[in-house]
């Protein structure tokens, strides 16, 4: 009753129906979120305290969490995901540079734009397949290098335990920078042009304009983009790894999401996989926390 009265103070003509419809309109959204997010998140935390297979689980407390940290492969997977986080600043810089140049209406920008968006639409699995042939020992890259007598640079990109994860990182950069160009281009094009023009009149160089006028205005989009990319590097690498190295050689390119998949579905160790998933959630949570702290501090300063 009280909320009805509060609302009707503002809009005297509203009937009861117009107060109720918004709640009806969000029902489907709430239901699907409960089904696809809330329920699985609760279940995955619960399952992480159990051992056994899907049909026969028994409670074992925090043993899964302890065992995971004792498992070299899992620890190595976390280290690899953290290494892959290095792709985030690199991808962002490439996307930002490309988007800024396109924004200056450089000759041919329309064609460049169509081409630079291209990697974004290519499925990660296809990217992985294609790059596995490009990068393998006798693959296209090494054939090309040998053709120009650079044999010393023809390394075993995906077959070596030390290189494989960095090669995967390079593939992820290729696959992700197009999305950055899309998002940053959209953000740049919706900026008001007056400020940038005023800076031009004031005699600011292109570099000064970009550094002090344009980039600060799209800072929030850049941060948002970096969070999405960081989540990709942490938890969305499966299709690349699955098609390029399957985690090998000798688990050297193991990552968390492949580990979860392996334990959950190949080995049927639901509890272990769930505990690994909770570790992954915690790591993502740390990331989000940093991000929201950053946003908060900015809005306070404003």
């Amino acid at each position: 009753m009280k909320s009805d009265q509060l609302i009707s103070v503002g809009t005297a003509t509203n009937s009861r129906r117009s107060e109720r419809w918004p709640y009806l309109f969000i029902v489907p959204m709430v239901l699907i979120i409960l089904l696809v997010f809330v329920y699985p998140l609760i279940a995955v935390v619960r399952n992480s305290f159990y051992s056994g297979s899907i049909s026969n689980l028994s409670f074992i407390g925090t043993a899964n969490y302890v065992n995971l940290l004792r498992d070299d492969v899992f620890v190595h997977a976390i280290v690899n995901n953290i290494k892959l986080l290095l792709t985030v600043p690199i991808t962002t810089l490439i996307s930002l540079a490309a988007a800024l140049i396109l924004y200056e209406n450089i000759r041919g920008w329309k064609l460049y734009r169509v081409i630079l968006f291209l990697p974004y639409i290519i499925p990660a699995a296809v990217v992985g397949l294609s790059f596995s042939y490009l990068l393998q020992g006798n693959g296209i890259l090494n054939t090309a290098l040998r053709n120009v007598n650079l044999d010393f640079a023809a390394l075993d990109w995906i077959g070596s335990t030390t290189l494989s994860i960095y090669s995967i990182g390079a593939v992820i950069i290729w696959s992700q920078f197009g999305f950055g160009v899309v998002v940053l281009t959209a953000s740049l094009l919706s900026l008001p042009t007056e400020v940038s023009e005023a800076a031009l009149v004031d005699g600011a160089s292109r570099w000064q304009r970009q550094r002090f006028v344009i980039i600060p205005q799209i800072k929030e989009t850049v941060q948002f983009l970096m969070v999405l990319q960081a989540i990709t590097a942490l938890a969305w690498v499966f299709p690349y790894i699955y098609t390029i190295t399957k985690g090998g050689p000798a688990n050297s390119s193991m990552v968390m999401d492949l580990y979860i998949w392996q334990y959950g579905f190949s080995l049927g160790a639901v509890g272990m996989a769930s505990a690994a998933a909770v570790y992954l959630l915690a790591l993502s949570g740390v990331l989000i926390l940093i991000y929201s702290r950053m946003r908060k501090r900015q809005s306070e300063r404003r």
């Binding site: 696809v36 699985p40 998933a277 990331l287």
Partner: peptide
């Protein structure tokens, strides 16, 4: 916004069982 960054792989096992 928070749900946008939940890694789907963490949801896969319970959804599979469901």
């Amino acid at each position: 916004i928070a749900l946008m960054v939940i890694p789907p792989v963490t949801l896969v096992i319970p959804m599979f069982m469901l």
